[in-house]
Amino acid sequence: MQNYIDYRKTQKPLEFENLVVEIGFGSGDFLIKLAKENRNEIFFGIEKSWIPVNKLLKKCGLKKINNIYCIRLDAYWAFQLLFRDNSVKKIIMNYPDPWFKKSHAERRLTRRENLYVYAKKLINDGEVKIRTDDYSFVEFTLQEASFLNCFSINVSNPTINEPLTKYEKRWLSMGKNIWDIVLKKEKEPITLKINEIKEVSELYPVRISADRVDVELVAYKEFKIEEALYIKCFSIWKKGQDYAVEVLLSENGFLQSFMVTVKKKNDYFIIDVSKFSEVLKTEGIQKALNFLAKIIGKERS
């Protein structure tokens, strides 16, 4: 697992320079080929699922490749949390999901908020290179990139050389066009307000000064703690006077799932994140603990 980066445990930002990053590396073959041909460069892969991550790690082990690192995380947060400004020289996206419906535009990897974060991390003259078979996605990307006023933009129909991916074989056999988009950073982007999260060095347990708690009050309920900070509670387990609660926290769109424990201590209770839950320590989690403590420990007639 030496090629895998656990964003919850690693010191951030990473100390890499001139990175080549592929977003959505799939089988990992493209990234493996680049790394084998450029042994003195560092490559970084980003995926949201364990399946491609495990495939890539296995291939790196079999081929003894040590200049690839990867992470399982949404690309927006991976760039924001892990990389220093001006530390990435190229970003590659091969056939990203175009998310056809307008209602799904927030999921597109080239929405302006994502491109803004990419641009901040790119070196001067660094590039975002995108290959797609969907022209509506090309149009969307060009519109979003132009808004930031920091890229020179080039669009072309590339010559597709062997070896072809299974998608390229299918699309070319159907007579579909393929486009390459190259966004080259020429200056810093315009200022754009984006979603961010703030890490803290430690999460502190919260004391509930009460001789009893009513944890069932939060079971299968969703709460708005503050703007862009929500928590949803699910199952509750009880053993004696101790409890465990399954929760999902959304903090400016960053999702974390973990267990919260409520334990009896003499004449009070302690609410905390379970020691078996691995989380990115954020202000939002601390606020969630304080919020839940007030609900379950409130005196009732």
Results as ranks from 00 to 15, higher is better:
residue 165 T to C: 06
residue 245 V to E: 01
residue 262 V to L: 09
residue 244 A to R: 07
residue 220 Y to R: 10
residue 170 R to I: 10
residue 278 E to I: 13
residue 199 E to N: 12
residue 274 S to P: 09
residue 160 I to M: 07
residue 190 I to G: 05
residue 205 P to G: 08
residue 255 L to V: 05
residue 249 L to C: 05
residue 273 V to L: 05
residue 199 E to C: 12
residue 186 E to Y: 09
residue 162 E to K: 15
residue 208 I to H: 06
residue 143 Q to C: 14
residue 179 W to Q: 03
residue 143 Q to I: 12
residue 233 C to A: 10
residue 234 F to H: 14
residue 235 S to H: 12
residue 189 P to F: 06
residue 269 F to G: 01
residue 168 E to H: 06
residue 151 F to V: 06
residue 226 E to G: 11
residue 221 K to L: 07
residue 219 A to I: 11
residue 267 D to C: 03
residue 183 L to Q: 02
residue 172 L to T: 13
residue 246 E to L: 10
residue 207 R to W: 11
residue 145 A to H: 06
residue 233 C to L: 01
residue 264 K to W: 03
residue 141 T to I: 01
residue 224 K to Q: 15
residue 237 W to A: 12
residue 178 I to K: 02
residue 201 S to G: 09
residue 208 I to D: 00
residue 149 N to T: 08
residue 229 L to S: 04
residue 177 N to K: 14
residue 172 L to M: 14
residue 217 L to E: 06
residue 252 N to P: 06
residue 230 Y to V: 02
residue 277 S to G: 05
residue 222 E to L: 03
residue 249 L to K: 00
residue 186 E to C: 12
residue 147 F to Y: 15
residue 152 S to L: 11
residue 200 V to Y: 02
residue 206 V to C: 02
residue 266 N to I: 05
residue 195 N to E: 10
residue 238 K to E: 13
residue 260 V to H: 00
residue 252 N to L: 04
residue 251 E to I: 03
residue 174 M to H: 13
residue 154 N to K: 14
residue 258 F to C: 08
residue 280 L to N: 04
residue 265 K to D: 13
residue 163 P to V: 06
residue 156 S to D: 11
residue 226 E to R: 11
residue 211 D to E: 15
residue 156 S to L: 12
residue 247 V to Q: 00
residue 166 K to I: 08
residue 273 V to G: 03
residue 246 E to C: 09
residue 276 F to G: 04
residue 190 I to W: 10
residue 183 L to A: 01
residue 196 E to R: 13
residue 189 P to M: 08
residue 224 K to D: 14
residue 280 L to A: 03
residue 250 S to T: 03
residue 163 P to L: 09
residue 236 I to G: 01
residue 142 L to C: 14
residue 155 V to R: 07
residue 163 P to W: 08
residue 244 A to E: 11
residue 257 S to I: 01
residue 242 D to R: 02
residue 209 S to N: 15
residue 277 S to E: 04
residue 144 E to W: 10
residue 218 V to C: 05
residue 150 C to G: 04
residue 178 I to Q: 07
residue 244 A to K: 06
residue 200 V to G: 07
residue 198 K to W: 03
residue 180 D to P: 11
residue 163 P to F: 10
residue 261 T to L: 10
residue 254 F to Y: 13
residue 172 L to D: 09
